[in-house]
Write a protein that binds this DNA or RNA. Structure first.
Length: 536
DNA sequence: CACTCAGGGCCAGTA
DNA sequence: TACTGGCCCTGAGTG
């Protein structure tokens, strides 16, 4: 199917025409106006679960990846099967609802893609009947919906009998939205503990609606950097000025002392790669490896399987932003910082999904998985951002997960010292990595090396983590030596980038924490939860 | 082996 | 005449 032709319509190079990056970012508002969507949503708040995410009609079941109506199912099928190429006579942002869905097939198909309908679910051989490969996805979706129904029921019962206790940290948990798509403060647990495995009592989530859309995001979403600058944000909004030493040792402490933060910040050496690579390079083979690398290419292929399609991620994040904006009024637009946080949040969901789908990661206990993710989430975000810049970014621009690009000069001219520093440091690192000609396999290995960090406290299966790290490390070395025989130092150069990644990620975390203390960070997000977990 | 349910086909209605 | 959308058929997966 020649469907990818449609994708270039989604990401657009961002030219800051308005002079306000926040406004420019909201150009992505998309296929229906916020007011229209808000009106629609308000008119049927309790039914949203049974409404087609494309047009709002009644859903008839799972079709091509998600619950849609019969009409959009048929439309999507015909579009893909007949390789339709539509055009939009308007601005490619036509309203999409029950009465207007027929007006613009272009925008309708874009909306189908944006909400997550999968072209690959339309059978090329046109075979009838049977089940598709998304069965597990549908099952999980149903289970999540059931869980939510139970939680909502429980919440209603509780609310009728008692007053909810205020959270321990009112600043942290104080501003939940009523948006059903909002994330929960226990989202990581929800993602990591599938149905029937809940370690958190239902009461834990009383204040925290679950975001099923995000939990159900397709596997292996990748990233866009949370530390991407927010140049439209005024300096006087409380951004702190502090020096940005490239070494973690000189990293400024958060205003609230935190042992974990201290420990990480004071750690002079990078974690996983050096530990394992040292033993590996010294000839100490791990006593036992989970997966042999005797066939490194197939091992790397296995790691690559979880990597996600960038276009799909882009569409997903765009759809999420559109939903968020649609639930707001015209005078209640998301500011640039909020947009960036939303992007980072969606990306983080994707990274958690990516980790969960990793065959290596699945070998660990869920408790260990959570601890590892809580430890390395910001480094994964940074790595993911770097990969995106190296793959898609133009010189002098930052490539967002939505496909938009912002000129670095625009950012640095409007951002405060901290953000400017972060941007500069990150761009420097992008340049170094570009010079190293990293390929996707090497990026995937680096992500695994960051993920499998045996130095993380309270990991029970430390040995397993070490072994996996060593295995990935070996695969990375073999791959680098095989593909770049003329560059014997490439493997070492790759590992040397990880301390820089970590340093940047710590600065990102600190910046976000400062913004959190100012009340700027959206509380009901996975991002906030991860940040909270570290600073608690 | 009966049942489920998601993808495909059909065809009357519509623009 | 091309497109839409409701309805039905098909058949792999499930218990």
């Amino acid at each position: 199917m020649d469907i990818p032709d449609y994708y270039p319509q989604l990401p657009q190079t961002l030219v800051h025409q308005s002079g306000n990056i926040s406004e420019d970012l909201l150009v992505l508002e998309g296929s229906s106006t916020s007011q229209e969507q808000k009106t629609e949503a308000a008119s049927r708040p309790a039914e949203s679960e049974d409404r087609c995410p494309v047009c709002g009609d009644k859903v008839s079941g799972y079709h091509y990846g998600l619950l849609t109506c019969e009409s959009c199912k048929g439309f999507f099928k015909r579009s893909v099967q007949n390789n339709k190429h539509y055009t939009c006579s308007e601005q490619q942002s036509c309203p999409m609802n029950l009465s207007q869905r027929k007006r613009c097939p272009f925008c309708r198909f874009q909306k189908c893609l944006a909400v997550g309908m999968k072209t690959e679910a339309v059978r090329a051989d046109r075979m009838r009947g049977g089940r598709n490969k998304f069965g597990p996805l549908y099952r999980r979706d149903r289970q999540m919906k059931q869980n939510k129904a139970n939680t909502d029921l429980y919440r209603i019962k509780m609310e009728t009998t008692q007053t909810l206790q205020p959270p321990n940290d009112p600043q942290w948990i104080g501003s939940h939205t009523s948006d059903p798509s909002s994330s929960s403060a226990v989202q990581l647990s929800r993602i990591m503990y599938p149905a029937g495995m809940g370690h958190l009592s239902e009461s834990t989530s009383l204040d925290c609606p679950i975001n099923h859309h995000k939990v159900l995001a397709p596997p292996s979403m990748s990233y866009h950097g949370v530390y991407c600058p927010f140049p439209g944000y005024p300096r006087d909004k409380g951004e702190r000025e502090f020096s940005c030493s490239p070494t973690a040792t000189h990293y400024p402490m958060p205003s609230t002392p935190n042992p974990l933060f201290m420990q990480r910040s004071m750690s002079a050496s990078p974690h996983c790669p050096t530990t394992s690579s040292a033993s590996f390079l010294s000839g100490q083979a791990p006593t036992q490896t989970l997966i042999t690398t005797t066939s490194t290419p197939s091992f790397l292929n296995q790691l690559m399987e979880g990597e996600q399609d960038e276009a799909q991620l882009s569409a997903k994040v765009l759809a999420s932003l559109q939903r968020e904006q649609a639930n707001r009024g015209k005078h209640d637009r998301l500011n640039t910082f909020s947009i960036m946080c939303k992007m980072a949040d969606q990306t983080l969901f994707g990274l958690v999904e990516w980790a969960r789908n990793s065959s290596l990661f699945k070998e660990l206990k869920v408790e260990d998985q959570m601890v590892l993710l809580q430890s390395c989430w910001s480094e994964l975000l940074v790595l993911d951002h770097l990969c995106r810049q190296v793959t898609y970014g133009k010189d002098g621009c930052i490539y967002l997960v939505t496909g938009q690009q912002i000129e670095v000069s625009t950012i640095t001219s409007q951002a405060g010292a901290t953000l400017s520093s972060l941007v500069s440091r990150t761009q420097d690192l992008v340049s170094k990595i570009k010079a190293l000609h990293l390929d996707r396999q090497e990026f995937v290995c680096l992500k695994h090396l960051v993920l499998f960090n045996p130095d993380v406290k309270s990991v029970h299966g430390r040995r397993k983590v070490e072994q996996t790290q060593a295995t990935v490390n070996r695969a990375l070395m073999e791959h680098s030596q095989r593909n770049h025989p003329g560059r014997s130092d490439k493997f070492g150069q790759l590992l040397l980038r990880l301390p820089e990644v970590r340093s940047i990620s710590l600065q990102v975390e600190d910046y976000l924490y400062q913004r959190h203390l100012l009340g700027d960070l959206p509380c009901n997000s996975l991002l906030a939860e991860m940040l909270h977990a570290k600073h608690n």
